[in-house]
Amino acid sequence: MTTTETARVRTAQPSAAAPRLEETRRRRRRHRPEPFTVASYVGVVAFGLICLIPFWMVVAGSLTDESVLSQSGYSFWPDPFSLDAYTTIFAGSRVWLSYGATIFITIVGTAIAVTATSGIAWVIARGLPWLSKPLAVFAYIPMLFTGGLVPMYILITQVLQLRNSWFAVILPLVVAPFLVFVQVSFFRGTPQEILDAARIDGAGELRIFFQIVLPLSKPVIAVIALFYAVTFWNEWFHALLFISEPAKYPLQLVLQNLITSVANAADLGTVSAAPVYQMRLAMTVITIGPILLAYPFAQRYFVKGLTLGATKG
């Protein structure tokens, strides 16, 4: 029986195989990638590697022993492997304090900046007589001119008395004109019918803003929040100008000091003979690591927010 069945199947195969083969070919053709797609993938992967390799070299360098690093330069693999730099950096309290400073500046700064930017952008986007246009001009002028370093320095240190306060780092960056106009463009795309419906339902202007406009604007808020967060995270110049107490230095200023001077390495940890090359690279890893993690969380809003903000209005 088995033999007969097998034979039947075997004899039936040639006639059924032809269309199946054709189908398979068609399917293969359908799934065969276009040459352009292949080229795109190759290009994107190559570009990705070009971006990743320097980053990897930094990571590898931070894990390579100082003696090899200073004599032979960077290598692709950490050999001999060494955690000296990380041990030295985390041995002292400086990096932890700096993390605290940077996190405070980033979180509080971003919260204030998003609030201020959204508020200004909404008022500009409303097109209110006597208010929106002057405010738009007010927001636009700093894109063209600034008061200059000396007036800002005098304002912060002598008028506001914010020397050695983290708010001296936050306040100068609280409103970025470019981001105001990105958000204005987005707000102008809010359907008027929804706003009118809310008014008919008895909502006041503040409620409309908080409960209708802002929930509808999550993509653009995520984008500007990310821009602000990266700006505040990377900020060192205002800290250099206004913060002179080492215990209040943000992370980026510590890194900048470390890059410019060997002696700062001794100040980070507890040893005087710190591995300088290795520590610079390790500090770079420590400094950029956390903010890199912010991108995946904002990614789902990112493209949408940018595109909407860029094309409407």
Binding site: L149, V150, Y153, I154, T157, Q158, L240, L241, S244, P246, Q256, N257, T260, S261, N264
Partner: peptide, 21 residues
């Protein structure tokens, strides 16, 4: 004393003198 990194010392000290700090 306020320690200013060597790289920034010239510009920072000039700024502080200019602001009559």
């Amino acid at each position: 004393p306020e320690f200013i990194n060597w790289k920034n010392y010239a510009s920072q000290s000039l700024l502080k003198f200019t602001a009559r700090e």
